[in-house]
Simulated scan of single mutants.
Amino acid sequence: MPVDQEKTGPRRQARGERRIAQLLEAAASVFCTTGYTASSTNAIAREAGVSPGTLYQFFPNKEAIAIELGDRLVHEMRDTYGEVLAPVDPSTPLEEAVGTAVDGFIAFNCLHPVFFALMHGPDIPGRLTEEHDALHANLLARVEALIAFYLPGAPTADIARTARMCFGLYKAGLELVLSHEGTEREAYVQELKNVLIRYLAPMVTAARTTA
């Protein structure tokens, strides 16, 4: 390979990665504002400050953009729940475990509101549906493991049901959290923690009493 190409190749690749990041950031803004179905490649290009032709150099359509964006977010989300749903110390109070999990997930979704817009919308594009289902199943398994820690001896079916209820409550609360800002958002986060703790605390108390 000529020396000039050796020097410009990595730079060209770096510029391409920056352009892709720029387009994905613009797409995230458009998807959050108008929704996936109503968005268009023209709107994404306009938000990114580039021509549609430049966008098409990297993505053939908006579905490809959404899939790339979703892939990256799913990967980051897996890292997030791996941290916030890690096995807890035996001395960790229920309130602390719930608070840590909620704070971790809320922080991720507030940083990436497009994750909720894409993954919880009625029109998840392409293979993101499969990735979302796999992420949901893995997340439920981690929640079940956390609940089982506080409810030793509880039937597997009860643990699964409780985990699904917790997950449903969280998703409902998340929508309220994301629709508010500032101190009102903080208040909704605290309300979500309170709901989960008050739901789980009687079970934990009963489990400790019969242990």
Rank of each mutant, 00 (worst) to 15 (best):
R72F: 00
T210E: 13
H112T: 04
S39K: 00
H132T: 10
T210W: 10
L192S: 07
H180K: 05
L176E: 11
F58A: 05
P152S: 09
R18Y: 08
E76D: 14
T162H: 02
A43M: 08
H120E: 11
G70F: 10
T8A: 10
H120L: 15
L174C: 04
A157T: 07
L23I: 12
A160N: 03
L73G: 07
A157G: 02
V204D: 08
F149E: 08
E76H: 10
E130H: 11
T54A: 13
R198K: 13
I20D: 04
R164M: 15
P93C: 07
A48K: 09
R78A: 05
R164E: 08
M119I: 05
S39A: 13
D133E: 15
T183H: 09
R185I: 02
D158V: 09
E181I: 08
Y56T: 03
R11Q: 13
A28W: 11
T210K: 09
L178N: 01
V114Y: 00
P113H: 11
Y170V: 06
T162G: 10
P10V: 05
P113D: 06
M165W: 11
A38E: 14
V195R: 03
V102D: 05
A211Y: 12
P90H: 04
A14L: 13
G168V: 12
A64Y: 15
V195L: 10
E68L: 13
A107Q: 10
T209V: 09
I197R: 01
R15N: 08
L146H: 02
H136Q: 05
Y150M: 08
T8K: 11
L151A: 01
T205W: 14
Y36L: 03
A134D: 15
G53C: 00
H112M: 07
P87A: 06
A187E: 09
T156N: 01
A145C: 04
D133G: 09
E144F: 03
L69H: 10
F108K: 03
F115L: 12
